[in-house]
Design a binder for these strands. Structure first.
Lengths: 249, 249
DNA sequence: CGTACGCTTGATAACCCTCAAATCTAGTGG
DNA sequence: CCACTAGATTTGAGGGTTATCAAGCGTACG
């Protein structure tokens, strides 16, 4: 219902149509989705484990993180969500939260009721497929995260996260190697599975090698092909039909 | 059309209905799915990265692995699939393979054409939702893998994989702490992101501590609550409505 | 019987975690 | 405006964990 959601919804539609074919009627149905905005401060929980939710979270501003937590509560970030991402579209078919969300920076979330999403997914099979497809791509992104943690050492891990975000941020913008990344080194540690102290030392090295500079607010890619090379990055798993960056140097 | 697929399809249906509500009509539609069986030998590729496929793979016997590979071809197993799993149901909405599959042991795969799956998903919204839900649970399982690699050390990582498989294998069987696991130590290394040599030493330690014994064919859980404790395991993310094992010791 | 492959063990080095303390920054209240 | 505080970044030192290199052993298969 809120007007500010329109911008985020347009970004969301852009992501969907980049990957699925939707007609005008379907697009209108998505654009007409009702929503209610909420703002979260850094490190605040957006949805908690075990909770039952009745709305999905569309990121409007800031960065939200999907995380997993062990029995004793230790957290690991599994996926980052940037504006235009429907961070937990999956909750529509799985309202018992198993992938909780937290705000990484100050974050504006537009909450969209499940009934509305279920309604258009039932009415338009093409929308149901595009939502399913979204979940599939999520799984691929998270799978790439497993590859990242399982096979790469610290510098390559961080490089990979930056490469992925550079591509995902690019959508609908001109390919600038500078994008917002309001993430502390401690939080970055929870993304790449490294101790904060080691994150710090690794960033220092990446900066010294003229590959990458982070300042807690913005990411600056100093040498794209160097980063891609270090991370052994390929953008295939993101499944964009068209990608302007060259990822095979 | 092959008869032997019936057993695997029944297992698949059991998994679906454990998590989604489906009517008799829908169940019959699933049971009537056509299929063609193929057998793969250990380490053989089932579907390759970049390939375009027109069928999904239902595991009949053995173990199949979904993996991710880096630009230079290094592989990391992202998820294991046991009999009754539709290993790449996601390919229905994403036919350009981004999550390739390989056989871990000798494996029988029943290939089910996409058109048949798309047809019943379009005809019955409840089926579309249950398929979508399957993708969501896949993502949760893979997310747990990220947690595993990002926060745990070698013994706990292996323990976690075993705990998960014990639960997933349990479906429709009596809760025995012994299940088939035809996986070499080298392959186990590609699951938990460890060097084979270190896998070996870790297994030795787990065996000495009377927690777990693997022989390349079968897994034997010697001390369930000890394993759960070591791995900080919770079965929540698997989203079974009913789980007989006690996972909170 | 030979060969290939997986398992096992030892030694060494690289990587990363942990503890600890100093510096810097941003926000708060006097 | 400045002192104060909490949190983030930075640096050092040490120890634990894991990778790497290498070699010996067992076993399955042709």
């Amino acid at each position: 219902m809120a007007q500010p959601a329109a911008q985020a919804l347009d970004l969301f539609i852009q992501r969907l149509t980049e990957r699925s074919v939707l007609g005008q009627e379907e697009l209108d149905a998505i654009r007409a989705l009702p929503s209610r905005a909420t703002t979260y401060s850094p490190d605040q929980d957006i949805v908690r484990l075990g909770q039952t939710v009745s709305h999905a979270c569309l990121v409007g501003e800031g960065i939200a993180a999907r995380f997993a937590e062990a029995a004793l509560g230790e957290r690991q970030i599994v996926e980052l969500h940037i504006p235009g991402d429907m961070a937990d579209l999956h909750s529509v078919v799985s309202p018992q939260v198993v992938s909780p969300l937290q705000a990484v920076s100050r974050t504006v979330i537009h909450k969209i009721p499940h009934w509305a999403l279920r309604k258009i997914a039932t009415r338009y099979p093409a929308i149901a497929f595009s939502f399913w497809r979204d979940a599939v791509i999520d799984a691929a992104i998270i799978g790439e995260m497993v590859l990242n943690l399982g096979t790469r050492r610290a510098p390559a891990r961080i490089a990979h996260v930056i490469c992925e975000l550079a591509i995902r941020n690019h959508l609908g913008k001109k390919p600038s190697f500078e994008f917002p990344l309001p993430v502390s080194q401690t939080q970055l540690g929870k993304i790449v599975g490294l101790h904060p102290v080691h994150v710090n030392r690794t960033l220092k090295k990446l900066r010294a090698d003229n590959l990458l500079a982070l300042d807690g607010k913005t990411a600056q890619v100093l040498n794209w092909s160097g980063l891609v090379d270090l991370a052994q990055f390929t953008s295939k798993y993101l499944q964009y039909k068209r990608v302007d960056f060259d990822t095979s140097p």
